[in-house]
Structures are given as C-alpha cells and as structure tokens.
Simulated scan of single mutants.
Amino acid sequence: MLEYRTEGFNGYGVKYSPFFDSRIAVAASANFGLVGNGRLYILGLTPNGIVAEKWFDTQDSLFDISWSESHENQLVVASGDGSIKLFDIGLNDFPVQSWQEHKREVFSVNWNLVAKDTFCSSSWDGTVKIWSPSRPTSILTLPTHTCTYSSAYSPHAPHLLSSVSSDSHLRLFDLRSPPSASNHLALKIPIHTPPHAPSEALTHDWNKYRDTVIVVAGVDRLIRTFDIRAPGQGPLATLAGHEYAVRKVTWSPHLPDVLLSASYDMTCRVWTDGSALGSGKVPQGPAVQIGEELGRMPRHTEFVTGVDWCLFGAEGWCASCGWDERLLVWDVRAVMGR
C-alpha cells in the first residue's frame, strides 16, 4: 500500500488518469470543505513512492474531479462557490477556462466517455448542466428541482445522462428526445422501496459491461443496483453492510459484477452484486440477485469520500482519499476475504 499526505487539505475526490497508469488527481478542501481554499493535486506513482508533480490552489473548496477524455493534460474540478474550472497541467497557476453558472455548490463533474467532447456537472441548486471545454457558457441545463449530488454520462451511449438527488430518485435523461416540458427526462426511478423510507442519494455509477445497469448509494447505507429496462421492478440487488452513509460507488473496469464503495464509516469495501450467477435478462419479478461483501480496507481514520479504479495493468489496483488528509493506493485483491 502506498500513501501520500495532502497536508492541510481533506480529500473529496480521486481519479486515475485515463491516459497514464502512474498519474492520479485528487480534489481536496481546507477545513473539511466547510470554509476556505481548495487544492488540486496531480500525483505521480514512482519507484520512490507517490510524489506531487504539481498542484493548483483555488479560492473555494473542491468536491469532485474529472479528467478530459480527449486531452491528456486537462481536467475539470467542481467547486463550492458554484464554479467549474478547467486546468491544464502543462501550464502554471491559473485555469485555462472557468465557468460560473451554478447558483450553489457543484458536487460532481463527469466527462463524456463516448463523444469525448462534453462533460456534465450537478449542483445543490437543483440542476445538471452540460458543457464543452471550448464554449464560454453551458450548452444545456437539465432541471431536477432538488439538490443533485451526482451526475454521469453513460459509458455506452453519448446521449444518455443520469443523476441522483436528495429526493431519493434516479433520473435518466435522453438528449435525443425533444426537450418539451420534460426537459429530456426519460425516466425517474424511486431508489427507496418499502419498508425503507426515502433518503438522500449521494452517488451512482453506470456498469461498464452491462449498459442498462446502474448502482446507487447514499445516506441510508444501502447500495442498490437497478436495470433501467425495468424501472418498476425495484432494485436488482441490495448490498448492506456499511455503518454510515455511502459517499462513493464505482463499478470495476475489469469485471462486470464487482464494485467498490467508500463510506463515512471510514472503510472502503469491495462487493459482488451476484449477477455473475444470473442470466442477465430483464427481471420479471422481485429481485433475486444475491450480492455480498468480498472484503474491506479499513486503513483510513476519517470519512472516506473518494475511490477510483486503475484502468490499466493487473485488475484490482485502486486509490482512495478521505478527510484524514491521506491518499492510499492499494490492491483490492489483498483485502478480499477479510
């Protein structure tokens, strides 16, 4: 396990570069993101450990990060002052572009993996916005009318976009549809099912192999998977075990049934959703997939707020960050069975 200390700044988001297996970015905030500056770290994995290649200071907290899919040196960050900034690590000091349209904190940014020419953001102001790095204003605004913690493009289709919000719903937007009164809203799926009460959804992710499966998690500590082909059937699988809110979930880029989670209970956990034993067909009745925890990594000493898989090399390497001012790089295979 490798470690880097983000001294004076509490980690909120971590992302491996999609171009280099030895480069990691961390979005961090002073004073736990409540007040003060932010810092974007660009870290390199070297034979001598993790070293800081560069960092950029910002006037407000940073909550999320996303690498450009078309430019190896560029990435966007989500800020607490409602701004979004595009940095180029080949340049010093200042962002190459900055946007200020959101009215409240921006909590997520996500690059389009298919078209590669746009990215999306979501905010506590109840909107999801779509941007181009070459345009000074947003391309499109999608209202959710509720505090929206996470938005993401489908990794399979450039026109599909999803979000999860404080109203305990998963929304799917189809940008091919006429905007009309629905503002491209194609589906609105309740995350909660009886006997569970509605609770804030904080994070979600598209499965990299099954193009209709999405995982969602949040304040009620449960991780749920849904098939958007059968929105009325409820969760495909429900994974229980975290003791506090789940802050981040992400599907493996190597295996279709494995995912990672990061939680306020100070652990990262690896799970299978049980789908490897199923047929993959659209469910016709109650969910029958039996998921389970495969292992956990308990080395953080404060809230764990970010986790990400390495896309390259042997499957299983990942990075996590948290409020303990630490970035940890570790092998999922080493914690399985614990």
Score class of each variant (00 low, 15 high):
residue 24 I to D: 12
residue 152 A to M: 13
residue 194 P to C: 06
residue 146 T to M: 09
residue 57 D to T: 06
residue 121 S to Q: 05
residue 248 K to A: 11
residue 200 E to H: 05
residue 214 I to L: 06
residue 25 A to H: 09
residue 338 R to E: 04
residue 246 V to M: 06
residue 172 L to Y: 01
residue 131 W to Y: 01
residue 179 P to N: 07
residue 27 A to C: 12
residue 27 A to S: 11
residue 183 N to M: 10
residue 189 I to C: 04
residue 298 P to M: 13
residue 167 D to W: 02
residue 63 F to W: 07
residue 247 R to C: 15
residue 62 L to T: 05
residue 2 L to W: 06
residue 219 V to G: 00
residue 310 C to A: 12
residue 141 T to E: 14
residue 95 P to D: 08
residue 100 Q to E: 14
residue 132 S to A: 09
residue 31 N to T: 09
residue 71 H to N: 14
residue 199 S to L: 05
residue 224 R to K: 13
residue 303 F to S: 08
residue 10 N to G: 08
residue 336 M to P: 00
residue 302 E to W: 13
residue 151 S to P: 04
residue 26 V to P: 00
residue 294 L to V: 12
residue 154 S to L: 09
residue 316 G to Q: 06
residue 41 Y to H: 07
residue 147 C to A: 12
residue 127 T to Q: 03
residue 169 H to G: 08
residue 222 L to W: 01
residue 5 R to M: 13
residue 15 K to R: 15
residue 168 S to P: 06
residue 315 E to M: 11
residue 30 A to H: 13
residue 110 N to A: 12
residue 64 D to K: 02
residue 231 P to A: 11
residue 207 N to H: 02
residue 185 L to D: 07
residue 126 G to W: 05
residue 286 P to R: 09
residue 276 A to M: 06
residue 76 V to T: 12
residue 115 A to Y: 08
residue 24 I to N: 11
residue 95 P to F: 07
residue 91 L to A: 12
residue 147 C to T: 12
residue 197 A to F: 08
residue 70 S to H: 01
residue 68 S to R: 04
residue 325 E to N: 05
residue 22 S to E: 15
residue 87 F to M: 09
residue 314 A to G: 03
residue 329 V to N: 00
residue 322 G to F: 01
residue 260 L to F: 02
residue 202 L to R: 08
residue 44 G to Y: 03
residue 213 V to I: 13
residue 233 Q to H: 10
residue 28 A to Q: 10
residue 216 V to N: 00
residue 52 A to F: 03
residue 172 L to C: 05
residue 133 P to T: 07
residue 338 R to T: 10
residue 296 R to P: 04
residue 334 A to I: 00
residue 60 D to C: 06
residue 312 F to H: 13
residue 21 D to F: 14
residue 123 S to I: 10
residue 178 P to G: 03
residue 308 D to E: 11
residue 288 V to G: 06
residue 214 I to Y: 00
residue 82 G to Y: 02
residue 184 H to P: 07
residue 49 G to A: 03
